[in-house]
Amino acid sequence: MIQVKLFDKEHEKDLEKEMNTFLKKLDEDKLVDIKYNVAAITEEEEEQEQIYCFSAMVVYRA
């Protein structure tokens, strides 16, 4: 059966760390694909701060 694991973090290093922890437990032959996305949102408050969202989806065989 094909399954997915979703990851979503505000910092790329946090995403990397969480994904590497998950991938260490996954047999390499069960990995199907990894999809990666970055989104940037500008806050409409005083400072016009940008918020980043780093996300990934690991597709694997259970």
Rank of each mutant, 00 (worst) to 15 (best):
E10H: 06
Y36S: 07
L26R: 02
Y60A: 05
A39T: 09
V32F: 00
V38P: 01
K24F: 08
M1E: 07
F7E: 02
A39Q: 07
E43C: 04
D27I: 06
M57P: 00
A39F: 08
H11M: 14
Y36R: 06
T21E: 14
E12F: 09
D8K: 13
T42A: 09
A56K: 00
L31H: 10
E46P: 00
E10N: 13
V32Q: 10
M57C: 15
K17A: 10
K13T: 10
M1N: 08
M57K: 06
K13S: 09
E16T: 08
A39D: 14
N20S: 02
K35A: 12
F22M: 04
F22E: 01
E45Y: 14
D27H: 07
D14V: 02
D33P: 00
K30H: 15
Y52M: 07
K17D: 02
D27T: 04
V59D: 00
L31D: 06
M57V: 13
K13M: 05
F54Q: 06
Q50L: 10
M19C: 04
A62D: 15
V58C: 05
D29T: 14
M57N: 00
M1P: 11
E44D: 12
A56Q: 03
L6E: 13
E28T: 12
K24I: 12
C53I: 15
E49T: 07
A39E: 11
A39R: 07
E46L: 15
E16M: 06
K35G: 10
V59H: 01
S55Y: 04
E10M: 04
T21I: 15
K30I: 00
I2F: 05
E18W: 11
K13L: 04
Q50G: 03
Q3E: 15
D8G: 09
E10A: 15
M1F: 00
K17T: 12
E47N: 11
V4Q: 11
E10T: 09
I51W: 02
I41G: 01
S55T: 04
E12A: 06
E18S: 13
Q3C: 04
K17N: 07
A40C: 13
E12V: 02
F54K: 01
K25M: 09
E49I: 14
S55G: 07
V32E: 07
H11R: 13
K30Q: 14
K9L: 08
K25I: 01
K24T: 10
H11W: 07
E46R: 01
E16Y: 05
K9Q: 15
V58D: 02
Y52F: 12
V58N: 12
I41N: 04
I51R: 13
E12I: 11
Q3R: 12
E46A: 14
A56Y: 01
S55M: 11
Y60H: 10
M57I: 14
T21V: 02
S55E: 12
I34R: 00
V58R: 03
V58F: 01
L23Q: 01
L15G: 08
I34M: 11
T42P: 08
F22D: 04
A40N: 06
V58A: 03
A62C: 12
E47C: 09
K13I: 08
T42G: 10
I2W: 00
V58M: 10
A39S: 09
Q48N: 15
K5S: 11
I2T: 06
K17G: 00
H11P: 00
E47K: 13
V59Y: 11
L23Y: 09
V58P: 02
E16F: 03
K9T: 09
Y36N: 03
A62Y: 02
